[in-house]
Design a protein around this nucleic acid. Structure first.
Lengths: 248, 248
DNA sequence: AAACGTAAAATTGGCGCCAATTTTACCTGG
DNA sequence: CCAGGTAAAATTGGCGCCAATTTTACGTTT
């Protein structure tokens, strides 16, 4: 038996490249700063690591390149994008705008499920202090994504997701040696102010929080350390390939 | 003679998929509403129309799909994206946020070149009344892009460009029969208020302008008219292909 | 010994071919 | 005359091979 389908209705199903395992794997690896800006993303190596073909890798890399997460250079390959200092400042400025609007919208449409989600994230972040530093980095970023989700605007959420990810690239590029992405106690404060529906307080706390993040980067801190991705991807749960080794 | 180049510095040159002629051609054709939401974008047909290969078309379509301008359905092909009503509302809400911030930033860093650019665009728009309606549609969108450019934030500009383009898709999908994209006299008013450095006035005029645009769409106005792209692309200056014709 | 130039290896880019699915057209049956 | 089913055509998806460029390694020269 065949089920008949609409003749030419493009609203049936979406491709959903964001759900791609290669894209997701690269994204979380970047948000955890295991892949640093400038790292080479070889097609054959990634294909072997993720267990797929080279064409699939190319599509994923092209998708990430259009999101300004990966930079593709003709005949050179794909690299984790290294933001310029001007781009880093622009990302922070854009985050101030987007996230302030998201906080306002989240307070306007605050309900029990939103409060529960904020508390759940606060609990998860409080219990995370003794985890490995990789997952805690992704967790602090998730708080900002959660606020964007609570805004109820899917377009705003998508923009925020991109900016938050690019922020980790900016921080990884220009950070001063000993610095964290987010001060630990800033997120519960913002969450409480949102739950209390204190707009001006929440906006001030958010602005202060983003200011602290921006204060940790310096224009001269650009590192040129594209460490090899083999050992990194192996730790994520992917089997690496060993091709050859340059001897003495 | 060979010129030596940096060893592995990814900041040397960018790929720049946005400069691709296929992407640009499709983008302007969409902003002019010659390609309407739901239109099928066949790979062979586009390759023949633009005079390139099918692989190049695929890359361009994937890029546009990651920007939510094109929807790709597996084994079905690529279509001009048809926003949902919720997405259309979210786009307008996001534009209010982004463009308000852009106007504020533009006023803060206003200089002579910015004033000249605003006046130049106003003059071009005033002299455009008797042009064909295709280019005037793109011109009204350019005004909003110009404001985003004057904000001085390249990230904000990129976000605004995407939202403005997706707005034309939203309007084309849900517009009521006789409606224009922008009321003609709204842009000079906003430009004058920006030049006068009147923030609250410019923000109010912008909000009113976007409100007028949003008021012209209705949730039931979804059209299912994906007219063929052959005649449209032929008019843009591309040679179409004639394959076969179904006789009587 | 350091630097230049050359050659080999590796990687990316692109084209063509073929399988899988969909769309269309046609034919048959009610 | 309309509906359902079947077959042909068209289109997309994917894999493999080969050219072009880059990167690395090595040998030669000053």
């Amino acid at each position: 038996m065949k089920r008949l389908k609409p003749p030419a209705s493009p609203t049936t199903a979406v491709h959903g490249m964001d759900d791609d395992p290669v894209v997701q794997g690269l994204l979380v690896t970047i948000s955890q700063k295991r892949l640093r800006p400038g790292a080479k993303l070889g097609e054959d190596r990634l294909a072997e690591a993720f267990g797929t073909t080279r064409i699939h890798i190319r599509q994923a890399l092209a998708h990430l390149a259009s999101r300004h997460v990966v930079t593709q250079i003709p005949n050179r390959g794909a690299f984790i994008h290294t933001p310029t200092w001007e781009e880093a400042q622009a990302i922070f400025a854009a985050r101030r705008i987007i996230e302030a609007a998201a906080v306002e919208a989240a307070i306007d449409r605050l309900d029990d499920r939103a409060i529960e989600a904020l508390n759940a994230h606060a609990a998860r972040e409080a219990a995370d202090s003794k985890n490995d530093r990789w997952s805690s980095l992704a967790l602090t970023a998730d708080f900002h994504v959660l606020i964007a989700e609570l805004s109820g605007n899917p377009v705003l959420l998508e923009i925020a997701r991109g900016l938050i990810l690019r922020t980790s690239l900016a921080i990884a590029t220009f950070e001063t040696p000993g610095s964290h992405d987010c001060s630990p106690e800033a997120h519960p404060d913002i969450a409480d102010l949102i739950i209390a529906r204190d707009k001006v307080g929440a906006l001030a706390a958010l602005s202060h929080h983003l200011g602290e993040m921006e204060a940790r980067i310096r224009p001269a801190g650009a590192v040129a350390d594209p460490n090899d991705i083999g050992a990194i991807l192996k730790d994520v749960g992917i089997k690496p390939m060993r091709r050859r080794q340059s001897h003495v």
